[in-house]
């Protein structure tokens, strides 16, 4: 057995274990994305980084424990790094939540984005569409496709449109996808703009959002 200190709490794990085993045994948690025990331990997503006693940042899922190792799972530095990593992951993630099979509460990225306050995933990701008709299909100007997720979508859950109270996503690909959806469901953009003005009237990127939506909406099938 090897003695490890997780957030200064002593815990014993078997030899050949990894930090993540010790962390879990000590009752703490680290977020993971690419890690699947017994199947994948390549540490490529880096979201599970923890800080060691000597100040190094290492991935908990693939770093073997050693005697007397000190691990800190939630320091300021770890959180800052995780946040940036998450932003990078989201930056390379194709955000098409409307057609994603993991939407409606199964999206780990969404949970992380919410925890670390990173913009990127629209409300559509958590709008629990199970047995629930999409409001866009009904022809209502729902702001779900362009609003930052994290509220748990209480409005769309109750059948009223999302009014964007959490602020807009300014990413181009998300906006383009949204404009495509609005067009597909024949929702006039003026109505969407009108709803956008409810909460985003002073948002610095409002003009940019308008332009991207308009461009894509009027631009036809141009890619």
């Amino acid at each position: 057995m090897v003695k490890v200190y997780v957030n200064d709490k002593e815990v014993e794990v078997g030899e050949g274990s990894y930090i993540i085993d010790a962390v879990i045994k000590a009752g703490y948690s680290v977020p993971t994305l690419c890690f699947f025990k017994g199947i994948y331990r390549e540490a490529s997503c880096r979201i599970c980084i923890v800080e060691l006693g000597n100040g190094r940042l290492v991935p908990a899922c693939a770093y073997p424990v050693s005697e007397g190792l000190r691990v800190y799972t939630n320091t300021e530095r770890v959180r800052r790094n995780r946040r940036v990593i998450l932003e990078l992951i989201l930056a390379s993630h194709k955000i098409k939540c409307q057609s994603c099979p993991r939407k409606g509460g199964f999206c780990q990225l969404l949970d992380l984005a919410r925890e670390y306050g990173v913009e990127g995933i629209p409300v559509c990701a958590e709008c629990p569409l199970h047995g629930n008709e999409c409001l866009l299909v009904r022809g209502e100007p729902c702001l779900g496709p362009i609003t930052i997720a994290g509220c748990g979508s209480p409005c769309t859950r109750e059948g009223t449109i999302c009014i964007g109270c959490r602020g807009p996503i300014t990413r181009r690909d998300v906006l383009v996808e949204a404009a495509r959806l609005y067009k597909e469901h024949k929702i006039p953009l003026e109505e969407v703009f009108s709803k956008m003005k409810l909460f985003w009237n002073n948002h610095p990127s409002l003009d940019k959002i308008y332009n991207i939506l308009l461009e894509t909406y009027n631009g036809g099938e141009k890619k």
């Binding site: 390549e42 490529s44 997503c45 880096r46 990593i85 990078l88 930056a91």
Partner: peptide
């Protein structure tokens, strides 16, 4: 291109 910080971060 294996890990995110290097693949996406360097591009950014």
């Amino acid at each position: 291109g294996k890990c995110f910080p290097c693949r996406i971060g360097m591009k950014i």
